Amino acid sequence: MFNLNGKNVVYIGGFSGVGYQVCRLLMKKNISYLIMMGRMENMEMMRKLQAENSAVEVKFIPMDLMDRSSMQQAIKQMMGVIKQIDVLINGAGALADKDMETTMGVNLTGMMQMVMLSMPYMDKSQMGNGGIVMNIASVYGLEPAPAFPVYAAAKHGVIGFTRSMADPLHYQHTGVAFMVVCPGLTTSEMMMNLREKSMMGQQSYVGEMIEAMNQAKHQSPEECAMNMVKAMEMMKNGAVYLCNMGQLKEVMPTNYWQM
């Protein structure tokens, strides 16, 4: 089990929904620092988080996942506050298939850039003490998403990247465990106006698919966050988890080829 007590946690993503609930639960774990990074600060949410535990240092650092120079500056600013990263949670997400660049940039390439920029401060062979990288994918990283193929491609990429970084040889040298959580349908702002976000949404039959998504039962952000923190504390390198309807289930991907 991974003990979060006294750890420096960095959360990349928004202040609403699952992200806020994950951070709220982490505040109850007596971590040392909670660094939140994203495009816009929400002062009200920051005050609410700080009220959960006055002993934890909470700080927001602005950062644009679509801009590498912004990310580099954010990392520099962060390392002026903490000396190492113990837990990195990549929770930023964008469901906007009509904008391929944003969908791929926020969900996949920005996440990969953030991991690589953070690794020197996590890698035990460099300036870190090891730790955890948790990447947030989606059930659509495991399954096709006919109404949102670009989003599905990005989230499949998140899983592929995470599994690759979790190779035992990497872990042996860095001490950094990689895991990925794939939430099922979850009540959030992302799930609003789905037809407008789909590049295929003008097709009547795709509208029927989206309506089925809207009508399906959704888990709450609180349920999803609880299982994400549970997965974090288990610290199983290379684990792929399905987080759906309040349940956490490990998925065992099939390997079809090896050297």
Rank of each mutant, 00 (worst) to 15 (best):
Q21I: 03
M190H: 09
K155W: 11
N42W: 02
A212D: 00
L49N: 01
N193E: 10
A154E: 08
M179L: 15
M1H: 13
F148A: 10
C243F: 09
A177F: 14
Q84V: 03
P144Y: 01
I89L: 11
V9K: 12
N135F: 07
S16Y: 14
H218G: 05
F161N: 04
N214D: 07
I89N: 01
M127Y: 15
G128Y: 04
M235H: 14
F15I: 05
M104C: 11
Q73W: 13
F2I: 11
S69A: 14
L34C: 06
M252S: 12
V81D: 07
T187N: 14
S220Q: 05
G184C: 11
K155G: 09
G93P: 05
D97F: 06
M122E: 08
M78L: 09
S198V: 03
L117Q: 05
M79Y: 09
Q84S: 08
D123C: 09
Y140E: 08
M119E: 00
D67C: 13
E211T: 12
P120F: 04
V176M: 08
E143I: 07
V22A: 05
G160C: 10
E57F: 12
S198E: 00
G6E: 02
F148M: 06
K124I: 01
G6S: 03
L25Q: 13
V56F: 04
S220R: 12
H218L: 12
A212C: 04
G38V: 01
L185I: 13
P120S: 09
G19H: 00
P146Q: 00
M27L: 14
Q203P: 00
I136H: 10
M192K: 14
I31H: 02
L185K: 14
G38C: 11
F60H: 10
N107P: 02
M226K: 15
D167C: 10
G91W: 07
G93A: 13
V150S: 02
P146K: 05
A177S: 15
I75L: 13
I35G: 04
M232E: 01
N53Q: 03
C224I: 06
V180R: 09
E223Y: 02
V180D: 04
Q247A: 14
I89S: 00
M36P: 05
A94I: 07
M46V: 09
V81M: 03
M235R: 15
N237R: 10
V240G: 00
R163N: 07
G110C: 09
M134D: 02
G175L: 14
V10N: 08
Q113R: 15
N214W: 07
A74S: 15
M165H: 10
Q21N: 12
V240Q: 03
A166L: 00
V18L: 10
F178A: 12
M259F: 11
Q258W: 11
M40N: 15
M36C: 13
Q258Y: 12
Q50K: 14
M66P: 07
M232N: 02
A147R: 09
V133F: 07
G17P: 01
C23H: 08
A137R: 04
M104F: 14
M190A: 05
C243D: 13
A145I: 04
S32V: 00
Y241A: 13
I85R: 03
G38N: 13
N53Y: 04
F148G: 00
Q215R: 15
